[in-house]
Design a binder for these strands. Structure first.
Lengths: 339, 339
DNA sequence: ACATAGAGCGAAAACGGTTTCGTGTTGATA
DNA sequence: TATCAACACGAAACCGTTTTCGCTCTATGT
C-alpha cells in the first residue's frame, strides 16, 4: 500500500539512487528522468518514510514532553505552547505523564531516550522533587540529549530552564492585599519540596515582612500535595476565623476556599479577599471571579520549545551554555478582591 | 556516548549477530559468551535503538492522537486515559492539535502517517465536521493504518468509534428538569454540524416532546462554535426572562449562564436550574456546583486506545470488522438543581 | 585520431538492529 | 577411522533512506 523508492526504481527501471536524487531535484539527474520520476511519485503519492530518515540522520524531529499531570490548566497551556511552536518548526510532540510519580518519570524517560526523541521538555514530578534524585536526568544529559526544564525545576542539573518568578508573583499578590488594608493574610500552599511552592511562600513572607506586618507561621497551611484536600482546608478555616485574605498556590484551592467562605455567609471581597495562582477557566468563571497571578503557560511552552529546538539544531561544536529564562508573572485583577 | 551492538561486538571480538542473540538469551549461544556479552552490555548501559527496531519491524509503538483542543477538560481526560492504557502496553502517545482547523488536522495526519505511528485516535475538528470532507481519513485508512474516532465522529468513515450516548444524556438531563417541575427549559448549544451538539439537541427535543411540553425553537440558542460567546448568551437571556431551566452542551456555557442569573438576583436552583455537559473542575467548584452529564472521558480514552492497539497488533489476515462502542452517560447531581 | 571534460547514472556503504542460513569444530557412534 | 549430530558462532540480507564515489558515455577541443 505504501510505495517506496525501491518500488519506483523497479517500475521505472532506474536505480534507487537515481530516484532519490530525482525527487530532490538534483543537478546530477537529467530533466527527462526527473520529470518521469516526479510524475510517477506524485501519481502514487510517494512520501518518504520518516523512520528510515530518522535512522539515517540520527534526528527524529520528535520532542518528548514529560509532565506530572495533564488535567491541570497550567500544564495544558504549556503543552499547547510547545505544540504550536514545535509544529511550526516541523517537530512532533510526544507527551508522557509521570502522574507525580518518580518511577513513572524514570520509565517514561528511558522509553523515549533510546532514539525516539531529539530532546526533552519537562517539569518534575513532586515525588522527584521530594526525593531529590535526579540521576535519570543526569544520564540523559550525559548522553548528549538536550533537556529543558520548566516550572518545577532543580539546580542540580545543568540545562536550560524556564520559570516564572514565583517569588515575585506571590510578593505582588500579597502586597496588593496589604495595600487594600488586609492584615491577617493566610497562605494555602504545599510542602516546600515543590520548588514553586517554596518560592511562593518566600514571596508571601517577604511582602509581609517588608510591610511590617510580620509572618504568623500558623496562618500558613501546607498541604501534602497539589491535589485537593477538602478537609484540610476546611479545618484550617475553622481554626482561623480571623483571616481577612487568602493567597493560594493554585486556583482550585482558592475557589474551594471561596466556597467555604460563602457558605459561612462571608461577603467576597468585602469580608475576605482571595488570590490564586494560574489563570484558568476556574478563575475566570468562578463566582465571584478570582484574582490570580497569571503564569503565562503558553508563553512558557513556546520558549521552552524554542530553547530546546535551538539546542537540538545547534552545532555540536559550540561550547555548552545553559540559561534560565525567568518570565514575569502578571496580576489579573477580578472580583475576589477590591478594584 | 550511546553504545551499539557493533561497539560491543568489536570490543568483545565476536560478531554482531552473536551479540544480538546473546542479549536475547538465545539457545544458540554458549553460556560463557552470553554472560560476557550481557555483563558488558549492562556495564555500558546498552539499550537497543528504537528507531532501528521500528524500521526493521515496521512497527513504531507510537500512536498518534489528533484532537481539536487540549485546554478543555474533556479532551484532557481522554488523553490521560489513552496515555495510561497505551503506556501500560508499551506505546507512546504523540499528541497533535488541530485547533478546530481542517487544514491543521490534515497536515498533522500527513506528518504522522509516514511511518511515525502505528495508528490514529482522533476527534474531528469542527471545521472538518462542517465541511464534511473526510478524504484525509480515507487516505489513511486505505493505507491500512488503523483509526479510532471518538466523540466527534462521522459515519462516512469505516473505522472503530467510541462515543457516549449524547442523545440519551441530553434526554436524561432534560427529563430530570421536567420531573422537577420546570416547564420553560432552554438549550444552549452550537450549530448542528458538530455531531455531539446535534445528538444532544435531539435528546433535549425528544424529552420535551415525550413529556408533552413541546419544543419551542426560540428557546434553543445555537452558538457558532464551542468557544465562549458572552454577548450571545447575554442577549439570549435578555430575550428569554421566562426560562426556568437551562441545559448547556458544555460546562463553560453553563457556569457563565449561572453567573448571569445570579447577577440578575435569581436564586439557583429555586428560581432557575442548570445542567451542563462535562464533569470537570468548573462544574465541581462552581458556586453553586453544577449538575452535569458526565462523559467519562478517561474511560473513553482507555477504550479507544484498547481498540486501536488490538487492531494494530491483530493479525492482518482477519477480516475487517469495525465496531462503535457507545458509553452510557451519567447524571452527576449537584447544587444547580434540586436534590 | 585522441585525450578529456562533464553529464547522467548506478553500486555500495551507512544508519542499528533482527533473523535466516551456513559453516567449522567437537565428540560420540558404528 | 569414517560418519554424523549437535553446538557455537558468523555472514549476509533486510528494513528505507541518503550520499559518496566511480563508471560509462558523448561531445568537445587540438
Amino acid at each position: 500500500m505504501k510505495i517506496t523508492l525501491k518500488d519506483i526504481a523497479r517500475e521505472l527501471e532506474v536505480s534507487i539512487s537515481t530516484v532519490s536524487k530525482a525527487l530532490k531535484n538534483s543537478e546530477e539527474i537529467s530533466r527527462d528522468t526527473k520529470e518521469k520520476v516526479q510524475a510517477f511519485a506524485k501519481l502514487y503519492n510517494y512520501k518518504p518514510n520518516n523512520i528510515a530518515i530518522s535512522l539515517k540522520n540520527k534526528r527524529t524531529k520528535n520532542i518528548g514532553v514529560v509532565i506530572p499531570d495533564i488535567v491541570h490548566h497550567f500544564f495544558t497551556t504549556v503543552i499547547r505552547g510547545i505544540e504550536k511552536y514545535a509544529n511550526a518548526r516541523g517537530y512532533n510532540v510526544i507527551v508522557c505523564l509521570s502522574e507525580e510519580s518518580f518511577d513513572k518519570e524514570v520509565i517514561n524517560m528511558e522509553m523515549l531516550a533510546n532514539g525516539s526523541i531529539d530532546g526533552f521538555i519537562m517539569s518534575l514530578s513532586s515525588e522527584t522533587q521530594q526525593k531529590g534524585d535526579y540521576n535519570h536526568l543526569k544520564e540523559v544529559t550525559e548522553q548528549g540529549i538536550p533537556v529543558v526544564l520548566f516550572d518545577r525545576i532543580t539546580n542540580e542539573i545543568d540545562c536550560d530552564k524556564v520559570i516564572i518568578d514565583d517569588e515575585l508573583g506571590a510578593y505582588m499578590a500579597t502586597q496588593k492585599l496589604i495595600e487594600q488594608g488586609r492584615k491577617k493574610i493566610a497562605l494555602i500552599s504545599t510542602d516546600d519540596y515543590l520548588s514553586v511552592s517554596k518560592a511562593r511562600t518566600m514571596g508571601y513572607k517577604k511582602a509581609l515582612t517588608d510591610s511590617g506586618l510580620g509572618v504568623d507561621e500558623s496562618r500558613i497551611l501546607k498541604l501534602p500535595t497539589m491535589e485537593m484536600d477538602e478537609m484540610g482546608i476546611k479545618d484550617f478555616f475553622e481554626e482561623h476565623p480571623e483571616v481577612d485574605a487568602v493567597l493560594c498556590v493554585n486556583e482550585i484551592f482558592a475557589v474551594y476556599s471561596m466556597r467555604l467562605a460563602q457558605e459561612k455567609g462571608l461577603k467576597i471581597p468585602e469580608d475576605i479577599s482571595f488570590i490564586g495562582f494560574t489563570d484558568g477557566f476556574l478563575s475566570k468563571y468562578a463566582y465571584p471571579s478570582l484574582t490570580v497571578v497569571a503564569q503565562h503557560g503558553e508563553k512558557m511552552g513556546e520558549i521552552s520549545a524554542q530553547m530546546l529546538i535551538d539546542k537540538v539544531e545547534g552545532e555540536k561544536g559550540e561550547e555548552e551554555t545553559f540559561l534560565t529564562k525567568t518570565l514575569e508573572p502578571t496580576l489579573v485583577i477580578r472580583d475576589s478582591i477590591f478594584h
